[in-house]
Design a protein around this nucleic acid. Sequence first.
DNA 1: AGGGCCGGATTC
DNA 2: GAATCCGGCCCT
Length: 334
Amino acid sequence: MESTTPSPCKITLKLRRDDEQEQEPKTNDDKPAQSPSSSSVSSPPSSPSSSDEILQSHLQSQELVLYDPAVAANAGGDANRAATVNRIPNLNKSISPVSVSNSQGPRVLPSVGAFTVQCANCFKWRLIPTKEQYEQIREHILERPFYCETAKEWRPSISCDDPADITQDGSRLWAIDRPNIAQPPPGWQRLLRIRGEGSTKFADVYYQAPSGKRLRSMVEVQKYLIEHPEYMVDGLSMAQFSFQIPRPLQENYVRKRPAAPRLTAAAHASRTLEPTEANPIAWAGPDDTELQLGSPYLEAHVFDPVGRPTKKRAKTRTPSRVYNSNLNISTESS
DNA sequence: AGGGCCGGATTC
DNA sequence: GAATCCGGCCCT
């Protein structure tokens, strides 16, 4: 039986461009959601000696990074200190970083820069130190709402009295993630790739096997597991995989599908498409500061990458494709 | 209408 | 040539 208390928890991810460092003058624009007082950040510490201070310092520079292989490698010890977790200790794999080379590539895509979760009590956003912790919280966000108290696990001094770690502003794109997504199996990585604005989809989810192989659908995962039974460890199930992608809060980020013409009424026939629907970078407006609660969803912030020209290309498709969705993973061997 | 899925264009 | 990204078919 489920708990009777609602769980207005939300988790957020801050996304950023791969090749660009965020640098904003400030970050604490505490919204008066529940805390009209103490909206300004207190005097910052001089030297980051605690995980809390590390987070603060990251916040100051808008570079709070939760999942960034490169940064994690650099920050090493500090990052580990900030990420004092007592679960999945053997999940720290060393997989090739997913960051794209940014030497001179015109392609600029947003990427996850930070993870945050909303306290179910004070409704303030708290940064999550690591992707793994984020995934842990997300997995049980419905049954186990997040509170600032929970953040004491890695930030002993945090409490609901502290100002929010991050608030929504127009510089990022916020996206709602799905709750209760299972953590990837040990040795596996769940990768989220944000698409450029104007694409037909917001993002793609990949699972990277311990071997490094990337799978982009349940079908591919199943095939891979069948072909590589060595990864079919006991307890592994397809329920540990989810290709659910977050949804952008700005609806204009993703290209809208052409509405199905409904010719049932003559009145509709006279209706014409409005040019505003094709308005580029319309979501860049600052009106996205409104955050709606109500569902324990996760959210992500994204930097607007760039108005990448949409490549359009007619494509043919072989209609002879058939996939068997009834495949089920079993531990049978050959 | 939304999402899973994958072909193929694009980039490295 | 390999990896990545995007379009869009097609199923639910």
